[in-house]
């Protein structure tokens, strides 16, 4: 597999607080492997870890979603820095481009609009929601559990 075909996506959102290290993280690999981990001490004290393998058709759709978001054109240098509330990370390797963005948790679209880079942050904000929506569907259909 050449560099042009390299593909990897990882999203992390988490913080360390009263209930320890609470986070949600998932990744998609170019070979179709998809992993999900969610650790919330509050009410649900177990770590959820799920693994699936996606068909090429499903993987292709994921790539389309990422391409359409134009996230690879953005840069996180003007985005809010991680803080006590927590942080989000989005790492994507797509062909010869590799991004690893880090920012604060975004509670609302208002925060996005008021930031120094509303257009870029909006691309991030909506892509993250679309990716979460996809993986929650995959997990709930495959395992019949509510992932969060």
């Amino acid at each position: 597999m050449g560099a042009d075909d390299e593909f990897y996506v990882r999203y992390y959102s988490g913080h360390t607080g009263r209930y320890g290290h609470e986070f949600l993280e998932f990744e998609f690999r170019g070979d179709g492997m998809c992993r999900y981990a969610n650790n919330s001490q509050y009410r649900n004290d177990s770590l959820i870890r799920k693994e699936m393998h996606l068909s090429p058709t499903m993987l292709k759709e994921l790539k389309r979603i990422i391409e359409d978001s134009e996230i690879m054109k953005e840069d996180d240098n003007q985005w809010p820095r991680k803080n006590v509330v927590g942080r989000q990370e989005l790492e994507i390797r797509f062909g010869n481009e590799h991004i690893s963005f880090e920012t604060a948790k975004l509670q609302s679209l208002g925060e996005v609009q008021e930031s120094n880079d509303p257009d870029g942050l909006r691309a991030f904000y909506y892509l993250v929601q679309d990716l979460k929506c996809l993986i929650f569907s995959l997990i709930s259909l495959h395992f019949k559990i509510k992932p969060i």
């Binding site: 840069d75 996180d76 240098n77 989005l90 010869n96 481009e97 590799h98 991004i99 690893s100 963005f101």
Partner: peptide, 10 residues
């Protein structure tokens, strides 16, 4: 690979 463009604080 050296040709890969990296971007981001992460």
């Amino acid at each position: 690979a050296p040709a890969v463009k990296r971007k981001g604080r992460g």
